[in-house]
Structures are given as C-alpha cells and as structure tokens.
Design a protein around this nucleic acid. Structure first.
Lengths: 223, 223
DNA sequence: AATGAGATGTGAAGTAAATGTCACCTAGGC
DNA sequence: GCCTAGGTGACATTTACTTCACATCTCATT
C-alpha cells in the first residue's frame, strides 16, 4: 500500500511511518501542505493521511485543493488532535473520508486505512479514467480513446450510475429508483436510454463497456 | 440514500431513523440480526448501519454473514457502545468500513454515511479462489485457470450453492429447495442445469470439480 | 457374474420472458 | 414556432429455462 503522510511533527511522522513501513507500506513524507500537494500531484497513492493543524497552509485547505484543484479522489484520512464536532464536520466538508483523533491506536488507524484503500477512489468527483474511458464529472464530458462522446443528461447519469457501482451488476429496478426516484416513467424507457447510451458509447467501438446480465441487470466493465 | 438500520433499542432506532429520514433518506428497520440479513439479501442499500450488542445473533456475526454468505460489499458502519480497541479491531476484522461509538453526534454519522456511500463496492470482497477456480460474486464471473467461464444465472447460483456447502454433499432435494424455494419445476430440470454447468466448468478440463455421490447428491471439490 | 430398476447423464426442442431496436409523440425551452 | 430531450409503444430478436425422450450408469439382489 502506497501512503502519503502529511505531518509537521517530525517525531510523530517518523514513529508512525516506521509502524506503517513495518506493515509493508511504502510511505512518502510531507512536512508541509505545499510539498504534500506536489507529491500528491505527481504520484499515485492508495490513501492519504493528513494532519490539520500546522504552520502555513492547513490540512483542511490541502484537502480542499486535492479534491477541487488536483481533482484527486484518493481516499483521505485526517489524523489530528482537533476533536470537536465542528472540527470533524469541517474535515468531512473539505472532502475527507475518515477522521481519526489523536492520540490514536496505530492498529485502529491500520484497520481504517485498509478499509479505505479497499474501496478505492470516490466515484463521483473529479476526472476519472477507466481503461479507455475518461469521465469528467464537473463538466459532464465523456471521452473514449480521446474521442469525445456526446451524452444527454439522462444518459450521462445512467453511465455515472453504472460506473459508481462497477463492477457490480445493477438491477433495472435499482437503476430506475436512482434515476427517477419515486416517479419513474410509466413505460420502461430505461431500455431506450440504455440503447441510446450504447449507440454513443459502445457501437462505434470493437468491444462493449456496458454488459447486459440477462435477468439481473447491467454492469459497467472497464477492462 | 437507502439505508438499513439494525438496532434493537426501539427508542434509539426511531429517533435516529427520524433524523435520517429528515435528511431525505429511505430507511428500513431491523430489530434483530435475522431480519437484517433477510432485508439485506432482498433489497439494495447504499449503506448499512449495524448495532453490535443485542440478544441472539450479534451485529458482528451479521456483518460476517453479509460479507461471506450473502457476498455483499455494501458499505457498512458499526454503531455501538463498545469502545475498546479490541472491539473496534473485531469490527473491522468482521468486514466493516467504519466504526462509530455511542453516544454519537448525528451530524458526524451523517458525514460518515455520505463518505461511505460515495465510494463504490469493495474490491477485495466478492472474489474467492478455490484451487484453480476463481469466482467473482459482484460481477458474477467465473474463471478456471484464468480462463473465463460463461454461466447462466441458474448455473451460477448452482455453483455458488455447491461452493457454499463444500466440501459437504448436498442432496438434490436441498438444492431444489434452495434454488427454487416453494415452486420447483415439475420435471427435475436440475439434472439439465447440472449437465450444463459441468459442460462449461468441467468438460474442458482434465479433472472434475463437481462430484456426483450416487443416491446422495452432489458436492464441490476444489482440490 | 448376471440382471434389472432406479438414478443419473445427454441433448434437442419448445416457450415465455427479457431485452434490443426504432419511429413517433409530447412538453418545455429558446 | 422550431428544436431538443426524453417518454411511449409496437415489433423484432435474443436468452434462458423447462420439458421430454432416450442413453448410460450404479448398485443391490439374485
């Protein structure tokens, strides 16, 4: 597991880093938010651990930049002494996935890191690439092999939904529920939307990204 | 957001449920682990909230069953009064994604639920390997020696069932009961399904994974 | 060892349901 | 008043499951 650790307390950084390396992790160290951002931009990490309180740019700000400027959806955990409810809410609002208060048990941290890493990046923000498909959630644009794919709103939402659940199969009922909520169309126009989405996304290419699981639903497969 | 809440304290379940419904959530309630498992099996939830301490089956056990028997990778959060490190470690070992100790702030819970729901299914769950056979429950794919095996729904369920009971022999009656419930087919089409499953799974290979015990039933053997 | 009855394997064919396809309609925005 | 996105419904196609008929196997009994 590749980890980026932002912690200005050198002592703590070292002892924690030693523990993690003992768990067969590859740890990169940042002692300021600035270097943290640089490292996050240039490398891939399975999970980020950020302290909040430090001189200069705070961890909160770093997290916000990671999410909104770098468009990274890497799992992120705040490790901080700030323990009030408001601190935590700020942390989650900045875009973290977990929040652990110092002092902490390294073993608990280890469990949480594993749980985060197992889930992978968030599926709903930034720009993401799955094989030959690239999707930009903020500008709602989709590319396959650098070739722009023009999707209507519903079809985009449909694709987004399938990706979010990938590689799991999503039943038609569930898709309808997520797409239309309580007032689904009378006819099953989902079939039509799927057809249109595929015409754009799969028809011009040699293999399909959307797979039908007969009787079960649909599934997105990125290869 | 669709939520399943397992909590035997009716008071707490109600007040928490009310709060979540106020956040535009659709909440299903379970007061025992047994109903929790049934609901989780038959419905799709974005996140599961489980209490641990309760009469009968514990939340830990329920979590374990959700992961290993139902093969669901739905995000799961323990909400419990048990606050020792060992309790938490047990929770994560059972397969949870987050662990929140009572008493808790509903707002923090809400943040954590959102962070969980934003992520896709776990990648480390849902894939099992037995010898040369690999089965992916989330995408419903099966491989033998890296070679993809294409199975229809019933055959997949059949294989799943045999694996679940392996290495024990499962009688035809029991298979029919588990596969079709109260309305089994008139003829014993189970033979045909078994035949097809074997054609895919065993025929191209030198030794069989499915063994017939004459007069007893069938059994899966992984070597 | 021979035998026969029940258990199991094999495979073709029929059928109902799920899914794909597409032209047209409607409502709402510009 | 057109344009566009999405809904509707009719029809075509595909799929998976059941059913059935027959072959083959297994084992207890002779």
């Amino acid at each position: 597991m590749k980890i980026l650790l932002l912690e200005d307390d050198i002592q703590l950084a070292e002892s924690l880093g030693e523990y993690l390396e003992g768990m067969a992790c590859n740890v990169d160290y940042a002692h300021t938010a600035r270097t943290c951002l640089h490292l996050a931009k240039d490398n891939h990490y399975d999970v980020l651990i950020l302290d909040i309180g430090m001189p200069g740019m705070s961890g909160l700000e770093a997290c916000h930049k990671i999410r909104h400027d770098l468009h990274l959806s890497t799992p992120l955990l705040f490790l901080t002494a700030r323990d009030t409810l408001d601190d935590k809410l700020l942390g989650f609002r900045a875009g973290c996935d977990d929040y652990l208060v110092k002092p902490f048990d390294p073993e608990e941290l280890w469990c949480r890191l594993n749980a985060l890493a197992a889930r992978g990046p968030r599926r709903d923000l930034g720009i993401q690439t799955f094989g030959e498909l690239t999707i930009d959630y903020s500008s709602r644009k989709v590319f396959r092999n650098q070739q722009a794919i023009n999707l209507h709103a519903t079809q985009f939402n449909l694709l987004k939904l399938l990706i979010r659940h990938s590689p799991e199969v999503v039943s038609k009922e569930q898709i309808e529920a997520e797409l239309w909520g309580d007032e689904p169309p009378d006819s099953d126009s989902l079939r039509t939307h799927m057809y249109r989405l595929r015409n754009q996304l799969d028809k011009p290419f040699s293999h399909s990204l959307i797979i039908t699981e007969y009787g079960k639903g649909y599934r997105f497969e990125s290869r």
